[in-house]
Amino acid sequence: MDSVRQRPVLDVSDLPSVAFGRSNTTWLANVFYMMIEGTMFALLFASYFYLRTRTSSWPPIQAPPNVGYGIANGIVFLLSLIPARYAQKVAPTGNRGKIQLALAGLAVFAIVNMVLRGFELANLNCRWYENAYGSIVWSLIGLHTGHLITEFLETATLLGVSFTPKMEGTRLADVAINSDYWYFVVVSAVLVDFLIYGTTRFL
C-alpha cells in the first residue's frame, strides 16, 4: 500500500534520455581517454628529444626514414577527416543509410591507412634493436599503429551494429564520439610523422 506524502519536487521527466555532444557522459570519458593517450604520446615525444641530446648526429648511424609513404599516409589521414566529420553530422539524425555510408567510408580509410603504415614500417631504415634511436622511432609508430588498429576495430564494430536494430539512442552518440577519437588519431599521426620524417632531416 502506498503511503502518501507531500513535498516539493524537481521534476525531470521531460528531459531526454540521449545527449549528443559535450553533455554526453561517454563523450567526457572519451576526452579523458584522449588525455591519457595524449600524455603517453607527449612523454614519448619528450623521450625522443631527450635521446637526441645523447648522440652527436640524428639518426646516429642510419639514413633518415624514406619520406614517401609517410607523406602519402599523412594525406590519407587528412582526407579521412571527411567521412569522420560526415559521421558526426549524420549520427544525431538517426538516418541508418547515411550512418552506414559514413562508417563504411571511415573503415575503408582506416584500412588504407593500415596498409600504408605497413609500407612505412618497411621504409624506416632502422630496426628497433639497433640503437636507442631505432627503439624510440619504432615505439612512436608502434603506439600510433595500436591506436589505428583499435580505432578501425571500433569503427567496424559500430558498422556491424548499424546493421542491427540496436543502432539507436546512445549508439548514435557513440558514432559521433568515435569520430572525435578519429580526429585524435589523425592529429597524433601528423605529429608522429613530423617527428619521424621531419626532425630526422634537420635535428
Binding site: S47, Y50, L51, R54, T55, P60, W128, Y129, E130, N131, A132, Y133, G134, S135, I136, W138, S139
Partner: peptide
Amino acid sequence: TINTQFFNPSVGGD
C-alpha cells in the same frame, strides 16, 4: 624481451 635499447648507454640509450 624484444631487445630495444632505450637504456643501453653504449648505443645511445640513457
